[in-house]
Design a protein around this nucleic acid. Sequence first.
RNA 1: GGCGAGAUAGCUCAGAUGGUUAGAGCGCAUGAUUCAUAAUCAUGAGGUCGGGGGUUCAAUUCCCCCUCUCGCUACCA
Length: 677
Amino acid sequence: MKKYKRYLITSALPYANGPLHIGHLAGVYVPSDIYTRYLRMKGEDVVSICGSDEHGVPITLKARNEGVTPQEIVDRYHAINKKAFEDFGIAFDIYSRTSNKVHYETASDFFLKLYNKGEFIEKTSEQYYDEAAGTFLADRYITGTCPHCGNENAYGDQCEKCGTSLSPSDLINPHSTISGSKPVLRETLHWYLPLDKYEPWLKKWILEDHKEWKTNVYGQCKSWIDQGLQPRAVSRDLDWGVPVPLKNAEGKVLYVWFDAPIGYISATKELTPDWEKYWKSEETKMIHFIGKDNIVFHCIIFPAMLKAEGSFILPDNVPANEFLNLENDKISTSRNWAVWLHEYLEDFPGKQDVLRYSLCASAPETKDNDFTWKEFQARNNNELVAILGNFVNRTLVLTTNYYDGRVPERGKASPEDESALKEISQIRRNVENSLEAYRFREALKEAMNLARLGNKYLADAEPWKVVKTDPERVKTILNVALQITANLTVVLEPFLPFSMEKLRKSLNCGPLKWNDAGRTDIMAPGNQINKPELLFEKIGDEEIEKQVQKLHATKKANEGSSMKTEPPKDPVSFDDFTKMDIRTATILEAEKVPKTTKLLKLKIDTGLDTRTIVSGIAEYFEPQSLIGRQISIIANLEPRKIKGIESKGMILMAEDKDGRLVMVTPDGKVSNGSVIK
RNA sequence: GGCGAGAUAGCUCAGAUGGUUAGAGCGCAUGAUUCAUAAUCAUGAGGUCGGGGGUUCAAUUCCCCCUCUCGCUACCA
């Protein structure tokens, strides 16, 4: 295995449009922090980089909604999230932000370097433009009627009601959210990174040279590469972001996917003038800690950018985690289904380590995992309190009671003593092996085994009994127990930094290095330890019940809001209404459109003619059951090709709250082509 | 529909180039113990390794089909 001189650890830049929750911690920041702390304890040269990702359309939208500037939004969440990280002991060397001057310069330079090397393709395309506001419209700035569910407030990229992803041209009756006017298509110039050009290189670099990456990461990369990569626009028309540093680029900024990962570089620059040795030396090992939603960006796109630039190193590994669910449901910011970090600390002050422990012990390393309060409680009460806290406490209490808190001399070690002391080094190696392989759950379990070992040692040695018959022997026993305790502060430090610091204070043993793990003389005889303090305390049912109730309340509130019927639409003139040709018709044939999930191809008799309509209802209707049914259609909708089939018209459907579709049919049999009015 | 990941004890997860009794932690039961936050220690119960086929002397591990979960993607006039 290659030996590296230094490490560059990056953690996904959280998007500065909301606060952080346990999913962020479990998926990215707890693992990256554990790894970083471990390397630092080993004395490695390591920098841990993170910061707020502050550009992109969602932030501008949020700003608009709240009537403030984008800068105010990112200032707010940058401060909140920075504090949350600090509070939880996520020890970045720097927590920067992409609205920094350094970042603007770095990102501009990066773009220019690629531009001058001729790495970009220039292309004009048509995009919606708001003439009243004099600006191009990002997908998110365009709303209109969702063609799928009829939601009037669907966005140009997605309908939030039915979850469908859209493109602006899909929207019926699109209008600008800025001025309310109807946007027009206009030509605009953009720069594209030809990812396809890097495909052969990526194929080798990932699929051949990095077979050791986690299966979820490797599989997803393979999937992307196999599907074929497309040029990707690196710029867009927007006024919030890093301006494209060219003369003919008025009103254009770097696309957020391009500028955000450069944030890692600019943050390093901001941290140290020596930044280049971390980014441009083959002797540096770079690791990206991310969630699975970021795999493509960190394994394919960013490496392609770095490769195109030419002077940067590439990540050695990208240990992406899956997602964390909460009490059996997806964590969702908009539905307030989350445990927010700042709220957790209000409810459980001083219990950072409990959450860190709980999230690491059941981290979504190989598949999505579920966080439950009951499990959180069990981890605390049965593991932290009962195994770790208890062992430490009984050792300290015994030492205090028997020797007034002075570390006793170790006499001749028995075979049991020897084997317990030897075990420490083995545990250290186990923890190391797991950490080096990014298996943090396993590493934590191994480290906890040292506390288990301690409990067993005490139970076997029975100092409280032996003290009555052979007081000299007890000195040795407690000396050994204290050495185990001191070693705990080393192997558990990356996971439980707050508690181990506290424990070291109790032991009076000062800061320790990773290499001290395995030593059997950390606690010097005669040293005075401090009065024992409990490391962890039990969490009662009431406290847990309170949290569960809080979530129930959220759920109830959400159900209530989804029960609401849609708000009324704007009035239309009778004229407009009569423009619609709504009629009855009968389904003659129905079949599934091949290679689609939702589409049915229907042949219908409209009374005027027999025509084909393609409809996205396959999830709710069996083709056979439709034949002969009388339905209502819009007959004069502009024809449109769907999956290569020309669809003439649209079938009227009522959509229930749960998304279920129901046919709108005449109450009694009428002839086909009857006008509905 | 295509692609990727996952499905192993009540829960969270290991594991096997195919081979005698499939492992761990927590939970549970029983016993021991009392230094310790009723914590600890020992022992035990508990699994047709998602379902169905196939290859094989032998499959949970390899192959095929299917089901379910998560993600990416196509798609909804």
